[in-house]
């Protein structure tokens, strides 16, 4: 069963991975980090990505429609993607069996990275992290 560190090391195996973190979006705290961070400081990056994640998780515009089978225990948003000239950021929300507000953040080089693969793998890792 993987812990936070194993999960992050797994994420770093993805092609083009530059850095990864497990972040709590209510507080902006990085619960675990690996590799580089775009700001040079994982704590600063965690606070910034948490703000973005919080907005996506809280604004009703991003939630699925009524009747889509979305339950209250679930995260309204699955993942967030930000792309710029040289990199991608994928924020994958983690669904837990206890109350939490956690997501996985992967920073990916654009030329080497495979966004589709990263999304699929991050989704799997988020499930493994909490289900073992």
């Amino acid at each position: 069963m993987p812990g936070i560190d194993e999960c992050l090391l797994e994420a770093m195996k993805l092609p083009g991975a530059r850095g990864a973190a497990v972040v709590d979006w209510t507080s902006g705290l990085a619960l675990g980090t690996v590799g580089e961070s775009p700001s040079g400081d994982h704590e600063t990056t965690a606070a910034e990505t948490a703000e973005l994640a919080r907005m996506a998780a809280e604004f009703p515009s991003f939630a699925p429609a009524d009747g889509s089978g979305w339950s209250d225990g679930d995260t309204p948003v699955n993942d967030l993607i930000v792309s710029n000239r040289d990199s991608y950021h994928v924020l994958q929300f983690v669904r837990t069996t206890f109350d939490s507000s956690v997501f996985l953040h992967l920073w990916l080089g654009r030329t080497e990275g495979n966004l589709a693969l990263a999304r699929i793998r991050l989704g799997e890792m988020a499930r493994q992290l909490v289900l073992g």
Binding site: I4, D24, S27, V102, L129, G132
Partner: peptide
């Protein structure tokens, strides 16, 4: 209890 889930919940309680 899965290790990752325990770490997340535990760190939440600790901080």
């Amino acid at each position: 209890f899965p290790e990752g889930a325990l770490e997340l919940c535990h760190l939440g309680a600790l901080y």
